[in-house]
Design a protein around this nucleic acid. Sequence first.
DNA 1: CACCTAATCTAAGAGTCTTTAGAACATGAG
DNA 2: CTCATGTTCTAAAGACTCTTAGATTAGGTG
Lengths: 226, 226
Amino acid sequence: MTGAGGNEFVEQPIYQQLSRIAKAMSNPGRLRLLDLLDTTAELTVEELSAASGIALKNTSAQLQDLRANGLVVARRDGVRMFYRLAGPAVSEFLGRYQRFAADSLADLRAEIQSYLGGAGQWDPVGPDELARLREQGVLLVDVRSADDYAHGHIPGAVSLPLSELTDRLTELPADTEVVAYCQGPYCVASPRAAQTLADNGFRVRTLDGGYAAWVRLHGRTAAACE
Amino acid sequence: MTGAGGNEFVEQPIYQQLSRIAKAMSNPGRLRLLDLLDTTAELTVEELSAASGIALKNTSAQLQDLRANGLVVARRDGVRMFYRLAGPAVSEFLGRYQRFAADSLADLRAEIQSYLGGAGQWDPVGPDELARLREQGVLLVDVRSADDYAHGHIPGAVSLPLSELTDRLTELPADTEVVAYCQGPYCVASPRAAQTLADNGFRVRTLDGGYAAWVRLHGRTAAACE
DNA sequence: CACCTAATCTAAGAGTCTTTAGAACATGAG
DNA sequence: CTCATGTTCTAAAGACTCTTAGATTAGGTG
């Protein structure tokens, strides 16, 4: 009955502190906010609220929580408050968390699968392969909103929001291989765009993990509005 | 007011699923249980309860939670239920989580610091350096309980529980360099042992991250009771 | 079979987290 | 100075989580 594991030398307050990070990440809204900040550098409370669909006051409250736990930092500019991730380690951890969660939870995989439409995954391109493909003359298409593109995008990418895609198909050089990307791993825009492009005879692939994964690999500096 | 970040293509249930892992880890007790399982392969509910100091029924309930979220798996043997981590990915993630949390939370660092006694860190040895040092004839001392040692230990280590250390000091070859280790990063036994050993004229260091870190690097197989 | 043990299920009280409304604060503009 | 705007603070209702007591199940033993 002495118990294996060495309880007698380890005390509680450490585990209480240790649980704080997980607590901060244990809420879908906060996770969404972190994900937004991960791909978009710096955003105001209002922008975050609009993009996440969380009520403004609640957004503010959740950001306080994230801030108190060292995951985000804030900067005031005039009347606005800008939030961003506390550092690259946070972004890196977030990526690992998402991958680990997808490995551990069959339900999460199912949810992603059903949300992305079950249909083919369009042969995803890893963010590390992208440079090589681009040298081969592959066309890189950013299917997020013009707004998001302006906020930051992969260098050399063409902005072609999903909503305008069907109208602007003729702008694309025929018979080119296309790589479409959107926000992050849970964004449905690039698979949908891929579907449309494939229907119109393009050879198309999607960027695995989207812009988020690319930024994680290459840093944001290179992506600043060129 | 369109909001940056691409909300329109990302839906909620995914973030709800995604938050489940963090929820499972957001409780000090569950983290403690995971930590115990991380260093000790397989334990019964009763052992986990005793080692963690969590009431039996509550321990059972928390384990159900961890199981439902894919972090641990259970196996029945006769009347007993044995729990262990769901796989090496869990152990790896747990390690990363702890390091990330320590980087993010000044309070956690302070808590560890004050718990470990503030005093010198005894020049920690990385688990990767250990093999090299052992070749140089360094003596490796396991200061956990005899029970824990029996459950699994680093090959070649000598069992010398902290409680018996002062009485058995003469057993150690004088003028040898010693590396002491205990459970994990939050275990106070090895710094205390180091203090005692240093007071008695030994050159002493501690193993960074303890047995947990070693197992993470080398796998548990090699550590099975030799 | 009756009985024991290890663990789980159920249910309920206490406690914590989430969300929102209203008041307050901080900054910049007129 | 007053006003408008963006954000935070305070407080309170409602929804979840944690913990534990008592009943129950699953497996083994005499």
